[in-house]
Design a binder for these strands. Sequence first.
DNA 1: ATAGACCTTCCAGTTACAGTAAGGTCAAAG
DNA 2: CTTTGACCTTACTGTAACTGGAAGGTCTAT
Lengths: 128, 128
Amino acid sequence: MNIKDAGKRVGLPPKTIRYYEDIGLVTPDRANNGYRDFSDAHLHKLTFLARARSLGFSIDDCRDLLALWEDQDRASGDVRAIAKEHLAAIEAKIAGLQDMRATLADLVQSCAGDARPDCPIIENLQRG
Amino acid sequence: MNIKDAGKRVGLPPKTIRYYEDIGLVTPDRANNGYRDFSDAHLHKLTFLARARSLGFSIDDCRDLLALWEDQDRASGDVRAIAKEHLAAIEAKIAGLQDMRATLADLVQSCAGDARPDCPIIENLQRG
DNA sequence: ATAGACCTTCCAGTTACAGTAAGGTCAAAG
DNA sequence: CTTTGACCTTACTGTAACTGGAAGGTCTAT
């Protein structure tokens, strides 16, 4: 299967799939004309990657997860450890964003937002 | 004032300040020896930038906010519009992360995390 | 034969810096 | 007077994970 159709199947743009090949995540076969040729196994792997990326795992995480996925003797504890760490990172990010949101929401709410120059948002920013 | 002390004052690493000069956000004076020389006005501007960045505004947003800050005839509505858009982006990001968190938390919770290979996390990933 | 939809590789750009190298400057100590 | 160490300078590279574009080859249908 050519790259465009493969991309449609797994939900990734061709560009991204080529990138994944560049960095060694997948290695599709090549047809005689030089076109990439994706087998079911490749598609399966790409689907795995797409899903992991959509859950916010980094490429490096994905590399580790792929290795575990392919290791029939893996310990589920290893997988869980990666997921837990990622979960903690996500929660930290959420907390940071929620702080920002609270402050911003206050500021937006307190600003008249009309033609006059007086602006609590600007004032807050300049006070540091 | 030299760059290191300026950085300490406003809470930004020297590298970041040089970068901000590179992209035209600040233009400190230069002493005879070529060292950057920061006035109170520069420090004030940098403080403004540091605060805006800490609220998650992009560099481009900061550029616009700075212009409004320095425009005594600004309309507060213009400031508010930028803040509102940013607020919406943050809220969207939070929502996305919360989705991830929910899914991941479920998976982590459902995985025994021991030495056995059976792993609901891997299974979820491979199903897409 | 040709049009258009694919495919290929390679290079540049994105965000907001951080790291490092090579070298100039300054203040204090020996 | 020199040396040391802390500071400063510019310039180049690398980061994450792609995206866009150029130049050119291939395939299919008309």
